[in-house]
Nucleic acid binder design. Sequence first.
DNA 1: CGGAAACTTTGATCTGGATCAAATCGCGAT
DNA 2: ATCGCGATTTGATCCAGATCAAAGTTTCCG
Lengths: 240, 240
Amino acid sequence: MDVARSEVLDAGTLVACRSCQARHGVVCGALSSSQLRELGRHSLRRTVDAGSEIIAQGAESSFYSNIMRGVVKLCKVMPDGRQQIVGLQFAPDFVGRPFVRESTLSAEAATDAEICVFPRNLLDRMISEAPELQRRLHDQALKELDAAREWMLTLGRRTAGEKVASLLYLIATHAEPQTATSTDFELPLSRAEIADFLGMTIETVSRQMTRLRKSGVIRIENFRHIIVPDMDELERMISA
Amino acid sequence: MDVARSEVLDAGTLVACRSCQARHGVVCGALSSSQLRELGRHSLRRTVDAGSEIIAQGAESSFYSNIMRGVVKLCKVMPDGRQQIVGLQFAPDFVGRPFVRESTLSAEAATDAEICVFPRNLLDRMISEAPELQRRLHDQALKELDAAREWMLTLGRRTAGEKVASLLYLIATHAEPQTATSTDFELPLSRAEIADFLGMTIETVSRQMTRLRKSGVIRIENFRHIIVPDMDELERMISA
DNA sequence: CGGAAACTTTGATCTGGATCAAATCGCGAT
DNA sequence: ATCGCGATTTGATCCAGATCAAAGTTTCCG
């Protein structure tokens, strides 16, 4: 294949991809330039407001997405309304469930977000054609599995205080703007969402947050902005 | 390749594989006959007693296994001894963590079991050579991920009674000898293990089991043998 | 067969986190 | 500015499940 020529031909469609945060992410990083071009032609950038649903639980979904910006929460709800967040995904993660059309969970933007949406059929075909893509998706699935199991430990065996510290630690670790000295970040989740992640109530979440604040492990500005003067100290609150 | 000839050559090594419960499982079902022969040559059947460890948490593991018979539990323990079972695997599941040598959890035989052990290096090579194998392992990983998330909901949001019912339902559903009429099975887990799976204490597990027994949803014979006269009734106890 | 250890059940009490109930804060709209 | 509403914090009380403490059961070994 003539690389220079395809560069020229691609110029129109590739502009968006070239500067894309997910260009070297799980999906796009595994594609040949012609595959990338094809996917680019059929994909669509979409901004989603915080709180709006990307995939509904129980629905058939005909598309996958890449997260370009923002945080997406994966939720399960029971018929009586009890709900549990079962995963958080950050840019440039892939969102979707290969091999199964019906979603067993809902995906919802936790913050204002930007996603790149592309058709399920097309990616499914590419998965079967590109072993490297399969491998990367397999790898992401295994990482999500590790994370899910870590959260099973947190949900089953940690105290309320440890749970909150674990979540703050997780977010501090994944949040995008890693400043050098003291870690500080914008919480992508409301107190209610934190409660739904940790299997507790908003009141308990709030009490544990003020406990951490009063003990000097964190500072809180405007509810959502968290400052962690010493990450080791926060890590110690998890006790594992 | 001459099929007839390879059959003859294989006769010695393939005997074990030919009658194997996992012959069409995740791993072996995806292999060509020559790959199967090679894997067979380097694999080893091993019986493991209930309670003995297959992989230690934090250890480097140089092998994978297939479960031939029995139940394997995946555990995480915290430095202070609290522990959580994060997965149960049944024959003919694959056990191991592709792409990462160090195990973040331990795998232990819950019942007396039989496993087929083979070298990591060899399977890793086959994974990169056989897209179908990658696909099947990817698929198993996604199923385990679905299961882990279902358990996150159980751990975070269900009551003690619902948790026990959920576990009995899971085991009844996966246990091998599915009789036609009333479902009955041998519990692969002790009360202590059930407690470690559900994030509760043995006393609470015991009380919930007797509650289910007294309400007629289950019958218990000899602690470990469970009879479920009506699975729908059990399912209703889960309330989702 | 006896007896001890391990497992399970049952009972009594305690407590961490839930629930119920107000304040308080921040923010957008009038 | 100030009103009003949703989000958060704080306080008071309650309760599901933990903890503490004994009994049974079963198994298995001498």
